[in-house]
Design a protein around this nucleic acid. Sequence first.
DNA 1: CACGAGACCTGTTCGC
DNA 2: TGCGAACAGGTCTCGT
Length: 275
Amino acid sequence: MPELPEVETIRLALRQGAGGAPKLPGQRIEGVRLGWPRHIAAPSPAAFRRRILGQTIQDVQRRGKYLVLPLTQGTLLIHLMMSGDLGMLPAGEPPRPHDHTILTLDTGWELRFNDPRKFGKVLLLPRPEQLLGGLGPEPLSSQFTRQVLADRLAGRGRRLKPLLLDQSFVAGLGNIYADEALHRARLHPMRRSDSLRPEEVAALWRGIRQALRAGLRHNGASIDWVYRGGDFQNHFRAYGRTGEPCPVCGTPIQRIVVGQRSTHFCPQCQQERPA
DNA sequence: CACGAGACCTGTTCGC
DNA sequence: TGCGAACAGGTCTCGT
């Protein structure tokens, strides 16, 4: 899915208005089209339709990979998962393929959730903190200090790659930014979280934040047919670069599978046992 | 607790 | 050219 930088890029576009579309905050929801009702994870599609009609969107926020839209009553949460995209189109434009969930607004525009793989989730919750509270810290917030990371790493004996993907450990990293963070930190994806020396913890902390910030600067990555305007895909150091030279040392990037996810790393820079 | 397998979906790319 | 396999930015549940 879009990871933190991609979701944040979408958030900013929706909140500020882009491409001729007016900003989302202040707009009232006047119509709902559920082309794939299973998009609606809570409440039931019927209750969702009933409760969301007439509500005004107050803001567009983000927590981890969730878009968080406080409404007059309750909060709309959207998770784009692997292939989801959110965008504004003029009402009346015919639905494109995979435009499954559409909210019609009082400005003559529509908020459309396009999602080829249909993994995405939409929730309308009275108390969103119930769900968001289970997420780990925001990696770019001031709360996420080296010490917080050190304590969380030491608290468990897991391999780094799956741990970085665990949203209850830290919120917002996905397969791309986990690989990019580990490469920047020069840490092997299989290293045990409780085996890191203090300087390695510091390197991981910097690696996570630098990778995410780089993604944000480039407005996220656009891969395959899922194009969102970002160009961070042209600046990957490890992810998806199997066989290509490591930008640091020139050694070919290697691909392995960890926790059933493709994992890309430099076998020279990121050794299991530090040289 | 940590981890692997399988499920949920469609579309693209790869290999023979 | 054709066709099946592998793969894809994520998360959940189940079993060991």
